[in-house]
Design a protein around this nucleic acid. Structure first.
Length: 271
DNA sequence: TGGTATGTTCCAAA
DNA sequence: TTTTGGAACATACC
């Protein structure tokens, strides 16, 4: 489900609620979602306080007292819910942290793909992630270097979290559309000028997603508005907002992909 | 009923 | 060595 803007929105929404809370209990009902194990996570978090919450790529990181941290990846359908004592349980609760006072942070996940990882000195699952696309280090030159040093389809490259961390299927389609680049174009066949445009497009779609609190497409992630401002994602068989031609749906590396065949040519026109 | 889903990982094949 | 394809994970929705 969530990509960088959605995860960041969740982190911001929960920051005030979880910061400073002392964890009194942890449980997880679907064992494979907790790593290294449910018992290890419980042992690790019990008695510690949450000192901060942040995002790295699509991971949520909760720093704990005593040099430890919890990492949560929501994958396709994970979400957080807040439960006050006496409140009613939402559907698909897979794990819960109970704090002093009785309030609970719930981890709900219909598809059970999400992960909760406890790390004490090392074992940080975000270590393999690529550059943050909204960071100062992500420059047009850096993107050009990333594209040049490989020969991969643009869509596959942008979705690769070890290269750039945080883009998912939606924002990748939106960024490629705004840059006028076909998802199947090979990365080393992108000109310097196109790389610059792609860089600006990536930042623009992510920033717009943040401004609109993410995109809400189904029951999984509520509250966002970005779904009302897609230019290409989910618009197959509808007219392109730029040229009016019909938006096409194709599969690229098992992922549904939306393009305007006219605005996103596979090859540059000869001079 | 079958196809589809905002994600990642693992292995085989090219 | 690098890149891609397919399956797997598990469930809900239309």
């Amino acid at each position: 489900m969530p990509e960088l803007p959605e995860v960041e929105t969740i982190v911001r929404a929960y920051r005030a609620r979880v910061t400073g809370r002392r964890i009194e209990a942890f449980d997880c009902h679907w064992a494979r979602q907790a790593a290294p194990s449910v018992a290890a996570v419980r042992r690790g978090v019990l008695g510690r306080s949450i000192e901060g919450i942040s995002r790295r790529g699509k991971f949520i990181r909760m720093d704990l007292s005593g040099e430890a941290a919890i990492f949560v990846h929501l994958r396709m359908s994970g979400r957080f819910e807040w439960l006050e004592p006496g409140g009613s349980q939402p559907a698909h609760v897979r794990a819960a942290w109970r704090f002093a006072g009785g309030a609970k942070l719930l981890f709900c996940d219909a598809r059970k793909f999400g992960r909760i990882i406890f790390a004490a000195n090392g074992g940080d699952p975000t270590g393999r992630l690529g550059i943050e696309p909204l960071s100062r280090q992500f420059t047009p030159g850096k993107l050009a270097e990333i594209l040049d040093s490989r020969r991969r389809r643009l869509k596959a490259l942008l979705l690769d979290q070890t290269v750039i961390a945080g883009l998912g299927n939606i924002y990748t389609d939106e960024a490629l559309f705004r840059a006028g680049l076909h998802p199947l174009r090979l990365s080393d066949q992108v000109t310097r000028g196109q790389a610059q445009l792609l860089h600006a497009s990536i930042r623009a779609v992510l920033n717009e997603g943040l401004r609109r609190n993410g995109a809400s497409l189904d029951w999984v992630y509520p509250g966002g508005q970005m779904q009302n401002h897609f230019r290409v994602y989910g618009r197959d068989r509808k007219p392109c907002v730029v040229c009016g031609l019909t938006i096409k749906y194709l599969k690229v590396g098992q992922r549904g992909t939306h393009i305007c065949p006219s605005c996103q040519p596979l090859h540059d026109a000869p001079p």
